[in-house]
Amino acid sequence: MKWTEEDVARLRSLWTTGKSFRVIGAELGRSIESVYRKGKELGLGSKPFHGETSPTWFLLTRVCLDRRGRTVHEMAKVTGASRHTIDALMRTKEAAGAAHVVGWEKRAGSPIPLWLPFPGKSKPKPRAMTNTERCRARRAKLKEEDPLAYKALIDRNTVNRARRNGSVRKQHAVVRALFGMGAPA
């Protein structure tokens, strides 16, 4: 089948879209080899597109158009790709200047980066909470949400501390006898 001017114009426009030879050939009703040879003959280059071809990256850029940072877990759920793949892709793109960290999600362990697949300056990673800070935060949250459980925790810690120090008061002889704590009544 001979190439018409309309076919050549369409080939030129499809070549710049980043579609593969197979897709271009299907749209023009021609074989992969035919599309490749005609593109080379026209001086369009050996490949139709030299930029980003990752479908995961394209999907991420569309999903993140709201400019809200997302974790690797959220991005993996949306795209269907593995968390490892998304993490590697985002770190590679960050090194190339095509992605950045907009913030960090705080949690008990190490903070989690919130990624955006657009150029920008990454925020530095905050330091992780120490064990003491985590315990204080947990106690403050417990005190606010469940005051009775908080009081029980404090009372338990007070008794345990007294036991460790050896300062637990002996029970009255009657109480020990009633509850079988070894003292005769």
Results as ranks from 00 to 15, higher is better:
31 S>K: 08
28 L>Q: 08
17 T>V: 13
10 R>N: 15
50 H>N: 02
25 G>Y: 14
45 G>M: 00
30 R>S: 00
12 R>Q: 10
12 R>F: 08
35 V>A: 11
28 L>E: 07
53 T>N: 11
26 A>Q: 15
27 E>G: 01
11 L>Y: 02
40 K>R: 14
14 L>G: 02
32 I>V: 11
45 G>V: 07
23 V>N: 08
25 G>K: 06
23 V>G: 00
22 R>P: 03
47 K>T: 15
19 K>Y: 09
46 S>R: 11
41 E>V: 08
52 E>P: 01
13 S>F: 05
20 S>M: 02
43 G>Y: 10
33 E>L: 09
35 V>M: 00
21 F>G: 11
34 S>I: 00
30 R>A: 04
41 E>R: 11
28 L>M: 14
32 I>E: 13
44 L>V: 09
45 G>I: 12
17 T>R: 15
49 F>D: 06
24 I>L: 05
32 I>H: 15
37 R>S: 08
20 S>G: 13
38 K>E: 12
9 A>N: 09
25 G>R: 09
25 G>C: 08
15 W>A: 03
38 K>T: 07
25 G>V: 06
30 R>L: 04
49 F>T: 14
48 P>N: 09
21 F>W: 10
19 K>Q: 14
52 E>W: 07
22 R>L: 13
23 V>P: 00
42 L>N: 10
30 R>P: 10
26 A>Y: 08
39 G>W: 04
17 T>G: 01
45 G>H: 11
29 G>W: 10
22 R>G: 04
48 P>F: 07
14 L>K: 05
32 I>F: 14
48 P>G: 06
42 L>T: 12
25 G>E: 04
13 S>P: 00
37 R>V: 09
9 A>L: 09
53 T>M: 04
53 T>G: 04
31 S>C: 05
45 G>C: 12
50 H>D: 01
23 V>I: 15
21 F>S: 01
15 W>F: 11
34 S>F: 01
27 E>D: 07
19 K>D: 11
30 R>K: 07
47 K>R: 12
48 P>S: 05
33 E>S: 14
30 R>N: 08
21 F>D: 00
38 K>M: 15
15 W>G: 02
15 W>D: 04
9 A>S: 13
50 H>L: 02
49 F>G: 07
42 L>H: 02
10 R>G: 00
22 R>N: 14
19 K>L: 12
54 S>P: 02
16 T>K: 15
14 L>A: 01
12 R>K: 10
41 E>P: 05
40 K>W: 02
32 I>M: 05
54 S>I: 06
21 F>R: 12
36 Y>T: 00
39 G>H: 06
15 W>E: 03
26 A>L: 13
23 V>A: 09
24 I>E: 02
18 G>Q: 02
10 R>M: 14
10 R>L: 14
16 T>V: 15
54 S>W: 04
54 S>F: 06
42 L>G: 06
44 L>F: 12
34 S>L: 02
50 H>G: 10
31 S>I: 13
9 A>H: 10
33 E>Y: 10
46 S>C: 05
20 S>V: 08
26 A>T: 06
46 S>V: 10
27 E>W: 05
24 I>C: 00
11 L>N: 05
52 E>S: 12
43 G>R: 09
14 L>Y: 04
37 R>F: 08
